[in-house]
Design a protein around this nucleic acid. Structure first.
Lengths: 252, 252
DNA sequence: CAATGTAGTGTTGTTTTTACACTAAATACT
DNA sequence: AGTATTTAGTGTAAAAACAACACTACATTG
């Protein structure tokens, strides 16, 4: 075992791309670095993984320390390990991305507030380390995810209008969507609860408010994965396909 | 910087899920461990990443040492880092998967040949470390990838029949496909060169042989990513969508 | 020359996607 | 009061993609 000692001189960190959505803009939360290296530059929030800490736990910890939020969508994306990416030594980083409702985010103690800020994703261009690369990978992943699963709701306040949802999809996919087709698609998924209320205080026709039906979604997912043995192969395949489609291609 | 010293006591490895296809069966290459821990168990081929080695390089190295192959499809999948996953200390592993043509694989020196063997993926069930978990993640990724990009060809010999290709898809997706629909779909992608030859030495009607048209594919991809500024937004969107579809859903 | 075994081929009904333009409902302004 | 402004909300038709389905063709083997 002593022969392996040379390998046990590395460290790893988690870095977190925290997406939020506000004022029609897709944003990420960045921290201004207070120390070397890259002092004064904006960077993704991240930190070393503790010796006895699982990776997912570390990502959750970093997120919670910064935003005070738990139970948000969090997913591992990719690991970056160029040999020279960190000036302190060999440090690889496991990138995570998370989706938070900016409405839930109450800026933490002033000490942090000064350092942490939301940045429009389209304007971010110069980050510490290889963080731009990490951001790009996570953004790609988000684009894929939003077409695949109804994660958009994670970024909106609990009640929202269809137009707001469409704007969110447009911001993520960086494209325009057809209003009527978008609504048809979304409503056909049957994952929205029509709150039968409308907006107030807007200087135009107020829109209906909807809520994401998480119970239905969870149930739906459970069914999709729970291949019971009763059905014929054909029927099963059909149902699975229908299920896939209902969720896939949330837009267009 | 001394405050960070505690973090620099970890190691990381790469583990490689090497897929091959033979006799209608999807297989992976496993190694029988000769040393503790898990001596005598089958494991994914993997090794520590050297101090100055990039992760991708390490994965390539492990693959080449074992198979002698370069220039194969290789992709990072996921990092596994449960705090207690390795009995020697804190070791996280970055999982890669690769696709090799078994026809290219000439078993290496006898010393390795005894230890490395292809295993039918459906029969693999007990591996060292958390390697079953890693295998599952990579298999999932392969299922997704095969629907998304024409990677199937990476697993077949240079010349193949459409039936062989279909069997490959069926093995990966673990489902049956309709022969006529499959052929229509594949041929409509226009990525196959009809060699205008047929099989020889088979005891039945011989099938036509095809070859993957890599040039066309590369060109196709390049166009797909190269958003020129001449087109109107609408036309561009249309083309991009058409492109996506041509590649997506290679089957069904 | 019959038996066996795989290769190869088209059509039709259904579903999904796309393109597209007007009316409705609220406030703001005069 | 009434007109302007702004966003909400709605249906249809044509095109494309998908799914289901069964027979003939061509080679070898016995």
């Amino acid at each position: 075992m002593t022969e392996f000692n040379d390998f046990f001189k590395s460290a790893f960190t988690v870095d977190n791309v925290i997406f939020g959505f506000d004022e029609g803009d897709l944003k990420i939360l960045l921290i201004k670095r207070g120390e070397a290296p890259y002092k004064g530059k904006w960077a993704l929030p991240g930190y070393f993984v503790y010796p006895n800490e699982d990776l997912d736990t570390a990502a959750k910890r970093v997120l919670e320390e910064l935003t005070g939020l738990r139970n948000v969508y969090l997913e591992q994306v990719q690991t970056f390990g160029a040999a020279n990416r960190h000036p302190f030594g060999r440090v690889i980083t496991i990138a995570y991305f998370s989706l938070v409702k900016i409405s839930d985010y109450n800026l933490q103690p002033a000490s942090i507030a000064q350092k942490a800020q939301w940045h429009s994703i389209v304007k971010v261009n110069d980050l510490a380390f290889d963080h731009i690369e990490i951001l790009n990978a996570c953004f790609q992943r988000l684009k894929w995810l939003v077409r695949t699963r109804p994660v958009g709701f994670e970024l909106l306040p609990p009640q929202f209008t269809l137009t707001a949802l469409q704007h969110l999809y447009e911001a993520i996919l960086e494209t325009d969507l057809d209003k009527r087709n978008f609504r048809k698609k979304i409503l056909s998924m049957n994952l929205l609860i029509d709150l039968e209320q409308t907006q107030e205080g807007v200087a135009h026709r107020p829109a209906r408010l909807y809520q994401f039906d998480r119970d239905k979604y969870d149930q739906f997912r459970a069914e999709g994965l729970n291949f019971e043995l009763k059905e014929s192969k054909k029927k099963e395949a059909k149902r699975a396909a229908a299920h896939r489609k209902a969720l896939l291609h949330a837009a267009h």
